[in-house]
Amino acid sequence: MTLNVLVLTDQRGGTLKTASRETLSEARRLVERAGGGRVWAGLVGSGLDAILPKVQEMGPDSVLLMDDPVLKDFQAAAYAVAARAMLEGIPSPRVILAPATAMGREWLPRLGAALGTGVATEATEVVPDPEGGIRIRRTVFGGKATVSVALPEGSCATLRVNTFAADPRPGQAPVTRVPVPEIPKEARAISVESTVEAPRDTVDLTQASIVVAGGRGLKGPENFHLVEDLARILGGAPAASRAVVDAGWRPASYQVGQTGKTVAPQLYIAIGISGAIQHLVGMSNSRCIVAINRDAAAPIFKVAHYGIVGDALAIVPALIGALRAERP
């Protein structure tokens, strides 16, 4: 069986997201598992020349480039039309993959709706389906269950970030420029008025491979810097429970959980967080979970892999001290 894969990359803001690199690598592995086929990297946007080498470095067979000022800002409707035009040159059987970033998660369902094919989001595993198309696995119910989903040839899937390895393979894939198709009226009804970028030295919570989260157990805003200090020294992002956000210790952008962000990093350290279900649904898919809590019966210990029962205000400074001693 062969399978051709179009990877729609996320390079919003002019940098190729790590998640795009992961998806390009998994597309290569998918084609190998299928026993043949080609990987196309599809880039849609404006002013993309600078990132071309970064895409080629991930070993696609071809690069399709649709670079035009009208596509400067991401909008699902316009980008879905753009992706359809790219698909024209790609022979069946084929599938479309994208990283499950905010952009990919909005883009692919709109594309799949237009194509009339299947769509699955946040896949944690992708294999060729002997009956054609692919089978993916994903978690549902906030990590309480997983499902396998069969998607026919021609379908779309987004791949969960921080889940697939990015392994560069030197290559010089040829670049084909694809002209911009006509953009429908509804896609022109949106315009980006401004973009506020997070400060450069901070790591985005949903992309971070390490997240350090603090809860009410930190006792007050004056101690919350312990969470931020530990996050910084580990190269991760700080986060918080809703109790911390509601108390006004930190802004809503910190919140992980049902009404906050969903994260699935390699390492999640929960400090002074009890582990309410609404918090767990936002982080229980993390690969390794550490809980630091004074109460040995706190529910967070049920989902954690490692636990320290004790006072966060003593343990966290000791952790920071140990890490600082290693990297003077």
């Binding site: 299947g118 089978r135 049920k302 320290i308 029962v309 004790g310 000791a318 952790l319």
Partner: peptide, 30 residues
Amino acid sequence: PTSRVTAFQLPPPRAGAKILEYTSPEEAAG
């Protein structure tokens, strides 16, 4: 439908955290 769920599974129950024993915060950190 254009996609089909072929299996619904519950993850095996987690064993619970491995609790680290210690006598000082430094030992816990280490």
